[in-house]
Every structure is written in structure tokens, then in C-alpha cells.
Computed example of a mutant assay.
Amino acid sequence: MIIPKFGVGTFRLQDQVVIDSVKTALDVGYRAIDTAQIYGNEAQVGQAIRESNVAHQDIFLTTKIWTDNYSADKLIPSLKDSLHKLGTDAVNLTLIHWPAPKQGVNIAEVMQNLLEAKQQGLTEHIGISNFNIELTQQAIDSIGVEHIATNQIELSPYLQNQKLVDFLQSKQIDVTSYMTLAYGKVLGDATLTEIAQAHQATTAQIALAWALQRGFAVIPSSTKRDNLISNLKAQEIELSAEEMQRIAQLECNGREVNPEELAPIWD
């Protein structure tokens, strides 16, 4: 697996809040950080890394190219701007944030532009985010499956995306799960609560352990030190086959993120 199994997300975190979150995450043991151009916090993430006690080369850093920057004349300059904000010569992973079919995005061209950024040494790995099966196949056809490190998609016990996951895993493309806790909606779930009690764990840990056991990478965010530490401990939990089956039955197509202008037709 190319992608670190456990990272910290920075979606919706701004200013001092994101600086503190990232510094705390690095302090308690995280070594992967996920950001994006549209989050508007790359400079603060860069500042947090500089102010931490962790060397830049020990951190796996991911950013995502926003839709405005997909063209050949914008993608690489925009990534260079991101690198400047992040305070680095290269990131470990750069993703196309949304396929945006309604905006007439040409997936083949965008992937070629992203591959050029990789060939210029601006990013170690490249990948996609929020792509369905059809658009993932277009990306594969454009640049070759060996260049696509991951598809970062919304996945939680309430949205298990089985067809897409099966396709990605059959192609050996890493699956990165975001929104694994469904904006906190899974935290009060009766089934997860019962399983959590059996493991003397939190429901968040159980949801994350489920994702890890499915072979996904996870990037939960938190502004609280205790939660950041607690989330990491999900890696120590082993769920039984019966518990995994009970969680599988929570599927209800509970999608939280579906921007009409950006999202594909989901599988």
C-alpha cells in the first residue's frame, strides 16, 4: 500500500485551529496530513509542520488540485503555489479533487497534466478523488493504472460503496476513506455502540477499525488532543468476522457530500 493507513484530515479547519490540530497530530504520532487547495489552509498546514518537532521528510503530505486549476496552463503553476504555501519542494501525493463532469472536464487531459507534474518532481505520487468506476477507468486509460496511487472517496458504515471499492481493489488502487464517521452521525449508532462496549472502545474507534480492516486508509480530523490520540488507537482493534458483518448491514447509502456541479453519477 502506497498511502499511509492513518492520517489526519484538515477539511473545514482554518487559521489557528488548523495549525493547532496539525501540530497536535504530529506531536501524538501522526505522520500523514491531508489538505487541499480549496480548503484555504495550505499555508497554515505548512506553518504547523515548520513549528512541529517532526522533520518534513518524515511526513506524508497530500494536497488536491481544485477544479479551476485543471487546465494545462494552470495545474502545474497552481501546484507550485501549493508547494510554496506548504513550505516544500514536493508533496508525497497530489489528487484531482473532483471529476466535475457537468463542467465538461476532460479526464484524460487532466490526468496527463497531473502526470506531467509528477514527471517534473513536484509530487511523488498522483491519484484521484470522488471518481466513480467509469471515470476511474478513463483515468486508467489515460495514464496507466500504475500511476494512480489512490481514489479518495466518501466511505462510512452508512455508505460502503461496495461496487466502487471492489473495482478499485481489483485494480490495486488504494482506497482512502474520508468522512468515515459520517460527520459524527455514526457515533450514536446502536450497533457500533454495542461493539464498542465489547472492545472497551469508542464508537469512533470501531468505525475507523472497520475501515482499516476493509483495507482502507483513513484521514479523520479533530481539534481535540484526546480525540486525535483516541482515533489512532483504532489501529489496535481487531473486529471479528461477525462484528464486521454486523457493520456491513448498516449500509443505507448515507452520503454526506454530493455537490451537484462536481460529483459524478455514483455507482
Rank of each mutant, 00 (worst) to 15 (best):
D166H: 04
T136D: 11
D81H: 11
L135H: 02
N130G: 02
I143H: 09
A100Q: 05
E51G: 09
P259Q: 00
L95C: 07
Y183N: 14
I19K: 14
T67E: 11
I76V: 10
S221N: 12
N253G: 00
I33P: 06
E260R: 13
K171V: 09
T176H: 05
L168E: 15
L228P: 06
Q235N: 13
L155G: 04
F6A: 07
A32Y: 00
Q112T: 15
A25D: 10
Q200C: 04
L159N: 06
E134D: 15
R214M: 09
Q245M: 14
S177R: 01
T136L: 09
K80Q: 14
Q120A: 15
M179G: 12
K23E: 15
S240A: 02
K233N: 13
I265T: 13
E251T: 02
S170A: 12
K23M: 15
V218R: 06
E146A: 13
L115F: 01
S240I: 05
A217Q: 03
D226T: 13
T193D: 08
N53M: 10
N113T: 11
G254N: 00
V91C: 06
L159G: 04
Y158I: 05
K224D: 07
Q169K: 07
Q16R: 13
A117H: 00
A139I: 12
R214H: 04
S177P: 01
M111T: 12
V45S: 04
A263P: 00
N151H: 09
Q172I: 11
L228I: 15
I133V: 14
T94P: 01
Y158R: 03
I19M: 11
L250A: 01
V45R: 02
D267T: 07
L208V: 08
P157T: 06
F216E: 07
Q57H: 13
V218A: 02
T10C: 09
I3L: 00
K224Y: 06
P99F: 05
S170L: 08
A209I: 01
V145R: 07
S156G: 02
K171W: 10
P259L: 08
V257K: 02
